[in-house]
Design a protein around this nucleic acid. Sequence first.
DNA 1: ATGAAAGCGCTAACAT
DNA 2: ATGTTAGCGCTTTCAT
Lengths: 321, 321
Amino acid sequence: MSEMTVSRVLRNRGDVSDATREKVLAAAKRLGYVPNKIAGALASQRVNLVAVVIPSLSNMVFPEVLTGISRVLEETDLQPVVGVTDYLPEKEEKVLYEMLSWRPSGVIVAGLEHSDAARAMLSAAGVPVVEVMDTDGQAVDAAVGISHRRAGREMANAILAAGYRRIGFMGTKLGLDHRARKRFEGFTEALAKGGVEIEDQEFYTDGSALAKGREMTAAMMKRSPELDFLYYSNDMIGAGGLLWLQEQGFDVPNRIGLAGFNDVQLLQGLPTKLATMDSCRQEIGRRAAEIILNRLNGEAAPEGKVELTPKINPGDTLRAR
Amino acid sequence: MSEMTVSRVLRNRGDVSDATREKVLAAAKRLGYVPNKIAGALASQRVNLVAVVIPSLSNMVFPEVLTGISRVLEETDLQPVVGVTDYLPEKEEKVLYEMLSWRPSGVIVAGLEHSDAARAMLSAAGVPVVEVMDTDGQAVDAAVGISHRRAGREMANAILAAGYRRIGFMGTKLGLDHRARKRFEGFTEALAKGGVEIEDQEFYTDGSALAKGREMTAAMMKRSPELDFLYYSNDMIGAGGLLWLQEQGFDVPNRIGLAGFNDVQLLQGLPTKLATMDSCRQEIGRRAAEIILNRLNGEAAPEGKVELTPKINPGDTLRAR
DNA sequence: ATGAAAGCGCTAACAT
DNA sequence: ATGTTAGCGCTTTCAT
């Protein structure tokens, strides 16, 4: 029996008699044979991998995007392969290079900001590329996400509408997290339109987010006791702040209101629900994977940007007063 | 210039004059050339990938193991590639098959329990295999982890030593999470030796762990108000329980003590520190990666099992009384 | 229904 | 320091 017949059986392709099929399968099983995809890929010029490049796995946000992607790809023969950049452009470049050198069938990458080299690689890859999470900027190919500028603006407007005026901000150092930066910009911009300026702000780099939230909130309330609202760049530090404020006996949301960002599932068990905004992570993942699939099936022209619209969830910490 | 020279430049191998090197590099950059690792791997019979197979990305525990692995591999030319099994043996089998068909240089897989087929593939892979997280059982090749049975026993002994006697247990459904099951078994076994039996227990499958912890704790304290200690199979549900008990005005740890498992960094910001046990996740990752590296360098015979010894951290919720 | 031949894009090994 | 050749393990294509 030629290797060709074996190949046919293992891929369910072409005509093979039941008798030989059985024999091949049995032998394969007995020998613990695992086909060599490297050779297969080289010969067929097809690789059933989709590269997924994200900044971090500990942020929870990204595993959720991944979940969305997997849900869709599971129905196909495509498989996601994850690369992590730690928010570093150089590392993103390196990871992209490594992944592209395996000739994946598609690329999903977080964010619209990339080094020139990274951009060039993506354009030259010759496969569908979907940039996810963000729509404020220029996409290489397709993009699915939310407008973080708008998210910041809308939260600012909701806060103003509720009657808060003395506002503090806490978040990660804005250097490399472009989405956090854009939210901040949208936020301050909308406040400014309402004639309000942020009165105090503080940034952190690392450590347990919950603990950081406590510390920063404690420090800020000491410095600026007049504040009546605190906007956090993510739910985890917001939750830390909330716990601290409640311990201190602050009346939330009357004396002081709070809001975070992301709508982390994890925090559903807290006694008080933090106001937040859903960042549509699972849906972003699903939509991105679907775009890749469509493109691979030759359907549809490039779909450009898909902007999802997150809604504010006021929880228990943002209430008109 | 032959393609061979190009290959040499791009891999920094063999002698190439500076002049030609420059020329090649320039051309490569200009053309956005990305080498085809598929062909390279097929020709060289080497793949710089290490397969990492874990049950979940949302458990936090596993990303931390991954972090340990990455830390070590970053210094080398090896790259981790992650596969997720959702705790399902069939999916593990499939994921392993897919990954092995890319002929990785090594495999790191969570747990010692695998289907026969999976075991066979691992043995036949012809590359170093390290099973991580657990040491209670038979390893295919090498293993790094902790003994969850022992972890359960030690927590039981600490609880008894502190004087608690009316004990309840809450955790995930024990079906597929073998490590949680082993902890539970060790726990009940050690209690039994001390003449104590678990008085109430409850298991959950999914949902936000923090919320589940609240709910289950509320239900259990209603059912069994006499309990004076609650052991949780992970810190997140423990934290949910803790928050609920404090809201209800329970005196923790005097009226009732609590303990979880894992020492989740995330919870460092809670007002009261839950008693827990470090599961050495980062170190497990590092050690596993090191074993792979050593083996690949031909150093050292198989090192068999490496059992790390977690310590109890009594926090504020487990105190002698 | 099965087989044979060519070739995917590289690298190892051996020239020169 | 550079070039040449063979071949990695499959799949495609074209016979039979």
